[in-house]
Amino acid sequence: MKSKFLFIITSIILFSCKEIDNPVPQVVESYDVIVLNEGNFRSGNASVSLYSNTGKVLDKVFQSNNNGRPLGDIAQSMIEKNGKAYIVINNSNKIEVLDIKTFQSVGSITGLNSPRYILPVGGDKAYVSDLYQDEIHVVDLESLAVLKTIETKGWTEEMVLVNDKAFVCQVDSDQVWVFDVNEDTLMQKINTNVSPLSICKDINNQVWVSCSGGFNLGFPAVIQINSNSLQVEKKLEIKDENKSISNLKINSDQDELYYLSEELYKFSISDTSLPSAPFISSQNRNFYDFGIEPVNGGVYIADAIDYQQSGVIYQYNTIGQEIGNFRVGLIPGYIHFKE
């Protein structure tokens, strides 16, 4: 009786004693795509996946190449500059700076509040938008110092630079604010639809901004802004408050715009209305973000699935046919093609 009892107890302990292995450094050879996996809010499980066109995928590159240290909480966005990757870690209040070849940390920009996006505005200077603070941080990408702050109002999101002017999405204000990047001063406020989130510029230096429409607060829209006159040139709306537009991006030729509204849509900068049919249908997949290949124009779409498991990147060719896929980390939310 006693031996049976001991056997049961020992079995229970053995079966339930799963331990985490220490991460082993990964050799980063050539790669073509960096995928930032946001991870869950307040779970500290953001990660970086690398994909090469040969089909090889490396996961959790930051953690494995930095002695097991986690990347942080919510990997939001990144830029590549001077052989370094600057990864904005939203809820960890920092920008982690990595060697783009080894993915070993070379430092971080701290003293931020809740950073979202980073925009180089000339030299080593860059603007950093913020979710909560009524300020844009001006940082130095070499010294990794915060130089100053510029007053804003509420949540600032994506930014784009056109002729020494930074166009900043003011999500809470339903406006795009324009700053002089030499003087770091506000030039003008441009009214948009509710919740401007994404912004980019086209081949003619025209600025395009997408507005989600908020929670039944207004129509979602894509708005064209003249970067010289700072006037709205065109407003393309979806006349349905229950719909949304997000993740506005432009191709490398800067003449075709893409956005997500459950499915992926595409239209030309010369179009006068938004497309009624999707370019790529989601087919019950959870399209969370996407990227457009700069060389051949193919599209990579990130699927967060249930937000609590490894995500998938689907690869499509220029005519929207699915040609492959690969697994990445938790909630793939930003796709960067290596420059």
């Binding site: 019950n284 997949r285 699927d303 609590q308």
Partner: peptide, 21 residues
Amino acid sequence: SEHEFDQSEGKQLIYIPEHQY
């Protein structure tokens, strides 16, 4: 599962230990 790439079907829910005593 939500679709063919959803690998959660038949898997243990998160933060529920299988064994405890």
